[in-house]
Amino acid sequence: MILDALLALAILALAAWTVWTRDAFAAGIGFVATGLLLALAWVRLGSVDVALTEAAIGAGIGGVLLVNAATHLGTTAEEAPPSPRQNRLIALLCAGFAVAVGTALLTLPDPAPNLVHEAAAALPATGLGNPVTAVLMVWRGLDTLLEAIVVLLAVLGLWALAPEGATRPAPPPREEGPLPLLARVLPPIGVVIALHIVWAGADGPGGKFQGGAILAAMWVLAWMAGLVRAPEVMDRRLAWALVAGPLVFLGVGVAGLVLAGEFLALPAGWAKPVILLIEAPLTLSIAAGLALLLLGPPERAP
């Protein structure tokens, strides 16, 4: 109880520090640390699935993207600070948002409406052991399909920033010493853990987004160490890796329309194998998409 209170206080303090600090790079690091503490809080609340996602996607990929952006922007000190009037407006809007969310949460009926019992009762029909995966793949498949497509759209948006004639992301600065060693030792372990997390997602905490994020991190680590080259954006194999997951998912959705009478409906008794059929290419697509987001926009060959 005391430990939980300390954890909550630490999250609030770190979040406040992250907002207050003037150095964009330091704020990015603060965001990562806040995310890791948040993951601990989710574990304490018994939501290990959310904790894994927060650690891998929120703190991990999101944090690296923010730190990356901060180093590209330089420190905020070079820019003109917002005027007092702008500051007041920002504060007012943020406070208004916080009040709106707080009011919505506090006015929920007690007990809050939930579908936990219905979900638990229907779980055996899916052949899955993890109710979170059942929600994501069976009952709310459309949301998951759109999430996978959002990753693809984000990559397209990033590539739209590329100058004319750009071929591939610029190579990272040359690294020697510990990083290339880590990039040789860690990926075999990381790939096994990532695949385990995807596979375990059927019956326990885990899933394709978390596993895909770890796969992406392993590849980006090897790229940072100069062990692998970034793919050319026009590479056919890259395009297939990116669209394989959403394409198979859409295909299964249309097949459901024909075989089971509804878009994304899974034929009875076949739910689990079909979900595995979707998740394998989807993991690949998510990993490729997240890795490309971390690499940044393609640039012209020097």
């Binding site: 510990p178 990083l179 880590l182 860690l186």
Partner: peptide, 13 residues
Amino acid sequence: GLVLLAGATIGPL
């Protein structure tokens, strides 16, 4: 082992 590996890499970087 993984924490040692991470610490030994991140420290020099």
